[in-house]
Design a protein around this nucleic acid. Structure first.
Lengths: 208, 208
DNA sequence: AATTCCATCCTCCTTTTGGATGAGGATGAC
DNA sequence: GTCATCCTCATCCAAAAGGAGGATGGAATT
């Protein structure tokens, strides 16, 4: 029986995926058992391959990384995930770990770190680099936005005026202003433009 | 004499850089002569190595990719660059090619495409994928912002109010409003929040 | 010399935004 | 049942933003 760690790589950028595979293939105790280039494929691959560890990018077509992790873990609660991404705001870190990721690495890390993290996660441990832990701690001190506030924030980022948001959400402009006011307070900003850029920077809202 | 194409890789993400090197090392007619992880290093490496083709990421610490290309080409006008990036808005494409890049590839492309693009660029040809050409065409139809308008737009993205921008730039608020008005017109948007998100989306302005 | 573009500044006006304050209804936790 | 939270809506008000229109001086181009 093969005792190598069976790894699935989920990454949409072809050369990055192939590069990762090339690097990890050179590691004797690791076996790449599959690759996926989007979230839907990742869910399918996981089911058929049931790897020990999954390397997951967050920005994926069709289905985002966080949703893919959530879906897979609802079927396989013991699934081990390492999020491997370029950055993607503080909110993404928070959501990934909340979804059940065991480690969060930046693509800037070394191969040795990657390999040792694969071992750690395979062994049931977690790994969060200090840099990420710091961001996570910051995120913890923020107040969560309510569902409605988040909707309003999305519209603000989309460039909609209060009056338009009111129509979009079928509520009065007063109510929109009330939500805007409270989300400005929670985000600690003075106006909607700051709210929009902060939301994008933190990853609370994404483009497209 | 070795006739292999001498390639320099500039990419800040360690695993991505190593992955690219692993992939390209397997190609017989290509020789990786060096690697750089930021813009400053890239300029230094170029001078000492003088590679045939440079693979350049745009988002780099210390000095951005566009500036690195510009600097290198002022010393070595014949330098050949392939921009290799995840996306980075329409404006980044425009600026890169303006700086003298000969090809602009997304990391999603295949290894074969990458290799054939290296050959093309080495042979003095250019390569712009249709997807990128489309974005470039869109960019061409936009009116350029003036230097002042760009400064104002940066402050808008930074969340500054007109009054604050006036202080920042040491001009009257009226003048700021005048610039804001004209940049809104050029960007084709109705207010500063839309201007901010559009600027980020197109890559006219970046965070940090 | 004439023209065009830019940056600077102005006034007057309307709309939008955000702040303060209060309050009713629904839901779910304790 | 009580309490807290959220969503809803209202009014009044002040500040900010945006639109219209015009004006000046400088720099570069023609």
């Amino acid at each position: 029986m093969d005792k190598r760690i069976r790894v699935l790589i989920v990454e949409d950028h072809h050369v990055v995926r192939k590069g990762l595979m090339a690097l990890l293939s050179a590691v004797p105790e690791i076996e790449i058992v599959g690759e996926a280039s989007d979230g839907v494929e990742a869910v399918a691959c996981y089911g058929s391959l049931q790897p020990d560890v999954t390397l997951m990018d967050l920005r994926l077509p069709n289905m985002g990384g966080v949703e893919a992790i959530t879906r897979i873990r609802s079927d396989f609660p013991k699934a081990h995930f390492i999020v491997l991404t370029t950055f993607d705001g503080d909110e993404d870190i928070y959501r990934s770990l909340q979804a059940g990721a065991k480690a969060y690495l930046l693509k800037g890390m070394t191969c040795e770190e990657l390999v040792s993290t694969i071992h750690a996660v395979h062994g049931g441990r977690t790994f969060i680099p200090p840099q990420i832990a710091e961001k996570l701690a910051a995120r913890m001190s923020w107040q969560d936005l309510t569902a409605r506030e988040l909707r309003v924030l999305e519209r603000i980022v989309a460039g909609r005026a209060n009056k338009e948001i009111a129509i979009d959400l079928k509520i009065s402009e007063t109510t929109v202003k009330s939500h805007v006011n409270s989300l400005l307070g929670k985000l600690g900003v003075a106006d909607r433009t700051q709210a929009a850029t902060l939301a994008l920077q933190r990853g609370i809202v994404h483009f497209s």
